[in-house]
Design a binder for these strands. Structure first.
Lengths: 208, 208
DNA sequence: TGGTCTCTCCGCCTTTTGGCTGATGCTGCT
DNA sequence: AGCAGCATCAGCCAAAAGGCGGAGAGACCA
């Protein structure tokens, strides 16, 4: 039995100590360090070279989890990165996998599920919670409903409450183009109005 | 030194065990039970009569934290109830205090802050995290920005993505009245458009 | 080469929203 | 009695958003 060294990254102390206590019940896990922010995580990975990084996405201040994952990947570190977060937002899942995460777990996952995910991650297996997986499958099944990068960008700005004119200025495109994109977004989201699009977008993305 | 019995209520196992580990470092705390849902919490309070109930607001399924607090209060139980949650949403704070919570802590609070809050709660003191307190003060200082019940009702429906016409039909008022209410809501929220109102409303309410 | 996506842009027309002013009835407080 | 706040409604007008059809440029892939 090989020992698996783990770095925990979460801005909430209670979550870190809870996870640490949980992993402590397994003989093959060794939590070698904890970080409360993305910046801290980068430094600790350097010094400890853990086999697995378990990372929350929503970090209170500074670098968020996605960015931390991206930077870890760029430094060609060989850590397996597991996302461990509260919400199963479509955008977060895609972005995390895109950034190089090996797996995606929800915080309400059963202990055994968490253990299995970590053990799998070091072996190169990617593991995700059932709700997360089903979301991804649905996206694969309905490619029509997947926003293009540009559309996603627009939608994101839309949830800031910008007008068409402002959207155009911000993205350096004409208002006509903005309207075209919006029409496509509405169709894909299955809504008829900007308001409904904002509502579903914000709710869907898990927020904050 | 008296021992303070505590019931933890949170749907996330890691949070519960983290909090338990944290409270375990203090000699005067005794976590007598844990619940993963509001329903479970009600039963456990019956059997254990803890001095303090530490409760998360966002429970995955079933009864949410606010409702659990309300029901505990109705059963004239003498427990001090502490809200321990991730987001400092205006609405949640108000509703929790209204339902009978003694304090409102954020999950990123420092350990000492958590300890102090629990010890204070049994003595009838109400404690809240600094960001939470400042939100409440701001509401007291700027009563102009507090929505009337009717306005809040409208805003809530607004975040469903309804049009003015639909709002009117739903509330049995004319479209003219809807517009009047909306104008007031925009002014109080400090926004100019429906979109921005929806965005700030949903974000402010903490969501999920 | 041809087909498909994506992003970009146009015009025209209808509907929706928002700003402004003003007004009524009710309630509660002083 | 008088005043303030709330909820209700109206009309008018300008601005914003949305629906419809069409279209060109570049990327990518079979």
């Amino acid at each position: 039995m090989t020992t698996i060294t783990v770095l925990l990254v979460d801005d909430h102390l209670v979550v870190r100590s809870g996870l640490k206590a949980l992993l402590g019940t397994q003989p093959d896990f060794d939590v070698v360090a904890e970080a409360a922010s993305g910046e801290e995580a980068l430094g600790l990975v350097e010094h400890h070279s853990p086999a697995v990084v378990v990372m929350d996405l929503a970090m209170g201040a500074g670098m968020d989890g996605i960015e931390a994952i991206r930077q870890l990947r760029q430094r060609n570190s060989r850590q397996a990165i597991l996302v461990f977060t509260t919400y199963d937002s479509d955008a977060d899942i895609v972005r995390a996998v895109d950034a190089g995460a090996m797996g995606y777990l929800l915080k309400d996952a059963a202990p055994d599920e968490i253990f299995a995910a970590i053990r799998g991650a070091v072996q190169g297996k990617s593991v995700m919670s059932a709700p997360v997986a089903s979301r991804l499958f649905q996206q694969l099944r309905n490619p029509d409903e997947v926003l293009t990068p540009r559309e996603a960008e627009l939608l994101s700005l839309l949830t800031e409450g910008l007008s068409n004119r402002e959207l155009g200025q911000r993205l350096f495109i004409s208002e006509a183009t903005v309207k075209t994109h919006l029409a496509h977004i509405y169709a894909k989201l299955g809504v008829e109005t900007r308001s409904a699009a904002i509502a579903t977008a914000i709710r869907r993305e898990g927020m904050r």
